[in-house]
Amino acid sequence: MRLQNDMIQKQLSHRTIREFKNERIPQDKFNLLMEVARHTASSTGMQACSIIRVTNAKIRKDIADVCRQEYVARAPELLIFVLDHFRNRSIANEKKNSQEKLVGMYHFFQGFLDASLTAQNVVNAAESMNMGTVFLGSILNDSEKICELLSLPQMTFPVIGLGIGYPNQEPQLKPRMPMDLRLFENKYTCFDSYLKNIKEYDEEMQTYYDLRDANRRVDSFSNQVVSRFYNLTSKQQEILNTVRNQGFDLKVK
């Protein structure tokens, strides 16, 4: 019995693509990706996600600078998925809603989830058509700058970027942590020694070559955790300031 269908096979072979062929995505295929985005599940049906298709070369370059990844500017399609309650707040105002309450963190996370789900759905659809993709969480290196570059109004926030195109590289399949460290039943499971439990995974990661530095093996996962968990810039650490400046009430006691 064949358990894997074509979609699952694509998902199990997912690779991040950072180098694309100099080939545009046909408009009909792009439109199909946007239909997939439109039909993505949405929290309470609020559809609190919008997408900005970045075509301006200067804005692309500025976004790549924020990401500190020059290849971002060269992606055939560059999309920014935006948490968007500006639209719904405007609808409520036009309905003569008298409540002047600030939009709070429940709505923030509602829109954040909508944008995240939409981005993943678009990735699945793109890969089903033999395109490659790269998620760009690095737009949050300076969320305030991204808001400025994209003229994002109050009640919006940039969630994640996405580059799409036809692959011009074949990266190695990146090793992943075993699910016995990530799948629990009924309650969260804590381990006495995580380093002991990830020892084989640590060793496996050191056999992986990241094409961003093709001649050098990557560091162990445990060393990556230390460097990436603690070495944040001030802009990354102060991201809630941008959230507040965009009009969301943090409700911090």
Rank of each mutant, 00 (worst) to 15 (best):
I239G: 01
S13E: 14
Q110Y: 02
L152H: 01
I52Q: 03
M155Y: 15
V123T: 10
D84C: 01
R228K: 14
P175T: 02
F81E: 00
V218P: 03
N241S: 08
P158M: 05
I17C: 05
F229V: 03
N124I: 02
E148V: 03
N130C: 05
N22T: 15
C49V: 14
S151T: 03
L3A: 14
N231C: 12
L113A: 14
L149H: 08
F108A: 02
L3W: 09
I139F: 13
E144F: 04
N88Q: 14
P158I: 01
D84E: 04
I91L: 15
F184C: 09
Q11F: 12
L79S: 00
K199M: 09
L250I: 03
N121E: 07
N197M: 12
Q11W: 02
V252F: 07
V123I: 15
L149W: 08
I17Q: 06
M131N: 11
N186D: 13
G163V: 03
L173G: 04
A92Q: 14
Q99G: 03
A37E: 09
S143P: 02
L113S: 13
R38P: 02
S128C: 03
N22C: 06
E35T: 00
R89C: 12
P158D: 08
C147H: 09
L117I: 12
R60E: 01
Y208V: 04
Y188E: 02
D114M: 00
K253D: 11
A115C: 08
R182P: 02
L149M: 07
V123C: 11
A126G: 01
V225C: 15
Q4M: 14
L211Y: 14
N141H: 10
E148F: 12
G104S: 07
Q69P: 05
V159I: 15
A92F: 08
G161F: 09
K95C: 13
I198L: 09
S143D: 00
P153E: 01
R217E: 08
N168Q: 15
K61G: 09
Q224H: 11
T44Y: 06
K253A: 12
M131Q: 06
F184P: 07
F86L: 09
L149C: 11
V122D: 00
K174A: 07
S193K: 11
R15D: 05
A64Q: 03
N141I: 00
M105W: 09
I239F: 11
K10W: 00
S227T: 10
V103R: 05
E19T: 15
P178H: 00
I239H: 10
V66Y: 02
R182W: 04
M105H: 06
Q237I: 04
R18E: 01
H39S: 10
L232M: 10
D219F: 09
F20E: 10
K196L: 14
I17W: 08
R74Y: 05
A41F: 07
I91H: 06
R18Q: 07
D213L: 12
N141K: 12
K235V: 00
V159H: 04
L78K: 10
S43D: 09
K235E: 13
V103I: 15
Y106K: 10
G104I: 10
K96M: 14
K174R: 15
L181V: 08
N186W: 02
F20Q: 10
A48R: 01
N31Y: 08
Y188K: 03
A126V: 00
T44A: 08
N215E: 15
R89G: 10
T189N: 05
G132W: 13
R60Y: 06
Q236Y: 09
I59C: 03
M155D: 12
D249S: 11
I239S: 06
T156S: 11
H107F: 01
Q206W: 02
